[in-house]
Simulated scan of single mutants.
Amino acid sequence: MSNTGIATDETSRLIASNKVEGTAVYNNQGEKLGSIHNFMVDKLSGRVEYAVLSFGGLFGMGGDYYPLPWDVLTYDTGQGGYVVNLDRAVLEKAPRYTSQNEPSFDRDYGREVHGYYGVDYPY
């Protein structure tokens, strides 16, 4: 907080990246799917392209990472997390990677990820 009393990590419209990381992600049935590991921002436009979901593993460790197009997430204040219209079985078959084999996040990969979720790739 600054000395003016205004929060610098969250406002009514904006949130700092460190507050997004770790936020829970639920499906429409209220089932927790995982949490936001990080997000990928386009360097030129400043637009968030992906939220990377940490899913699986034990106690949040050793799981895979699932890039979700930012546009498929909706923040739900009631749950205090993001909601995505997916069930667990669909997510389990989605494009993913481990910390040892990160993708290039190039246009071909972007088209693959966005196509899986039925979202137009904007680039």
Rank of each mutant, 00 (worst) to 15 (best):
Y26G: 03
D64L: 15
T77E: 15
R107E: 13
Y109F: 09
A51G: 14
I36N: 04
D9N: 12
M40Y: 12
A7E: 14
H114R: 12
G62Q: 02
L33V: 03
Y65F: 15
V52P: 11
V48R: 04
G5A: 05
S17K: 12
S45R: 09
M61P: 02
E92C: 06
A51L: 12
D108M: 08
F39K: 08
P103T: 01
G63C: 10
V90C: 08
K43Y: 06
T4M: 13
A16C: 11
V83S: 06
E49Q: 09
G56H: 02
M40H: 11
Y123T: 01
E21D: 08
E102N: 13
Y121H: 06
L91H: 00
G110Q: 05
A51R: 03
D42Q: 07
P103M: 06
V84H: 03
E112W: 02
G63M: 09
T74G: 11
M61Y: 06
P122K: 04
N27R: 02
S54R: 11
T77N: 11
Q100P: 02
V48L: 07
H37M: 13
G63T: 02
G60M: 10
G57I: 07
Y26K: 02
L68T: 01
I36F: 05
D9Q: 10
V25A: 03
P67E: 05
V52T: 07
G110F: 08
P122M: 02
I36E: 04
G57Y: 04
H114D: 08
Y75N: 02
T11K: 03
L53A: 05
R107N: 12
G81V: 03
P67L: 04
E21A: 13
P122V: 00
F55G: 07
G5C: 02
E21G: 07
V25K: 01
L58E: 13
G22S: 08
Y116L: 10
G78Q: 10
S104M: 12
F59E: 15
V41F: 03
G118Q: 08
T77I: 06
M1A: 11
R88Y: 01
V72I: 14
G57H: 06
D64K: 14
I6R: 09
V113G: 04
N38A: 12
D108E: 14
A89S: 13
Y121L: 08
F55S: 15
Y123Q: 10
V20R: 01
I15R: 08
G81H: 03
D106Y: 00
I36D: 02
G110E: 05
L58R: 09
W70Q: 14
A24E: 10
D42K: 06
Q29P: 12
H114V: 01
T98Q: 13
Y66F: 15
R111A: 13
L44Y: 04
L73V: 00
S104C: 10
D9H: 10
V48P: 14
